[in-house]
Design a protein around this nucleic acid. Structure first.
Lengths: 217, 217
DNA sequence: TTGAGTCTGTAACTCAAGTTACCAACTTAA
DNA sequence: TTAAGTTGGTAACTTGAGTTACAGACTCAA
């Protein structure tokens, strides 16, 4: 009974986020084959050396997608929010690439995992699925270009401001709950650099700094 | 008659490059609706503020895809070679984005332009087209990640070497026919920096420098 | 309340890379 | 052949950002 209620709730969430874009028959299919996964904040979902067998649809919460190279250097690529999927799941796991992508939950997150075999048939069968997948690809490419822009054309202080704005948009209370070290990690720089730049921003009156917190003003 | 021979030749090229991946019916469709375009080296194809109405299949030659921002800063993203298409065509032209992508021919190039309306029906109808489009997206995302890696994790001298290797791979004679200024433009740095780094590489015996030419050793 | 661990601030230094400036060599058109 | 434009070499300087080092403040568990 309780289990039934839980499933009901998840189906509601599914309809809430995807009901307007997927046709009813596809929603039923997703209910039928999708596997619901609840993941606590801060969990690393994909250590993508392993092969990926399913595609995540985000029901609630936020994932961050990061790039890491062999030496452990890392860089935030973009966020995945509810109603979205990770087009890169496919891209990065079909081929054997040296460097890799990791996905980490930024908050408690609920996902529906779709077995990758369904991709093929759904793409042929459901127009709405086709559109969804294409739009997802387009969205990710747009995000990646945005990232390229930032690291190629902006200086660190500008990147930091962009990061803070994005992060504050995503956060529920509008406050960035991160240590300087964590911010440095996501922007691929050092803690000292971030502390220095944040301090400058604070002096300009753009932000306020507290322990484990940054607030945009 | 002469015109007929030309069409024959193009169809041969089409089959040569795509015959093994597309089913016969799709090849016929492409012949029927595709428009052949010959473009001289160095031509800018897409000033992507305008809306894009067709998707290019590369029959021969090479295109470079570059990112440009408002201030005219630019950066090479990747190359498109024969047998490939630009998945970004869609991505970057559907939405109105501030910064943009441009495509420039790196050599004399022949393209077949596919009207974008066909996308929808072909994707439903032809499995090989679906696969082609997905693989194309995946390939582009992979390329973009490679670019992100380079600018995020590598120093300029390492990026330069990577660039020279890639460029020499693509070039017919294995020689990089570029001025230092042009290289600087594609790597988004200044001519002086490139000259300096090239000179160092030459002293190490890794390359030889001539006017308008760099040769990898 | 003490001590270990974490987080932030700051100074001093180094280095890669961007900038300015100027010259020499080559190319091309007048 | 001369003059103007293009290309490449080099020096001198500036700057953004990465590094090392250390200290003070906070947190939490023993």
């Amino acid at each position: 009974m309780h289990f039934g209620l839980y499933i009901e709730l998840m189906i509601d969430k599914l309809k809430e986020n995807y009901g307007s874009i997927f046709e009813a028959a596809l929603i039923s299919e997703i209910e039928r084959v999708g596997i619901i996964k609840e993941v606590a904040s801060g969990t690393q979902l994909m250590h993508i050396g392993q092969y990926i067998k399913s595609m995540p649809l985000v029901l609630s919460g936020t994932l961050k997608i990061m790039r890491e190279d062999q030496e452990g250097d890392s860089l935030l690529l973009y966020y995945l929010e509810r109603g979205e999927t990770c087009a890169m799941t496919l891209s990065c796991c079909l081929g054997n690439q040296k460097s890799e992508i990791i996905a980490v939950t930024e908050s408690d997150t609920i996902l529906i995992m779709i077995p990758i075999e369904k991709m093929e048939s759904w793409t042929a069968q459901f127009k709405s699925w086709r559109n969804f997948v294409f739009e997802s690809y387009n969205h990710r490419i747009k995000d990646l270009l945005e990232t390229v822009d930032s690291i190629a054309f902006l200086k660190m202080d500008e990147r930091l401001i962009k990061y803070l704005e994005e992060k504050s948009r995503i956060s529920e209370d509008g406050i960035i709950h991160k240590t300087h070290q964590e911010i440095a990690y996501e922007l691929h720089t050092s803690r000292v650099v971030i502390s220095r730049l944040l301090k400058t921003l604070e002096k300009k009156g753009a932000i306020s700094i507290e322990r484990n917190k940054v607030k945009l003003l």
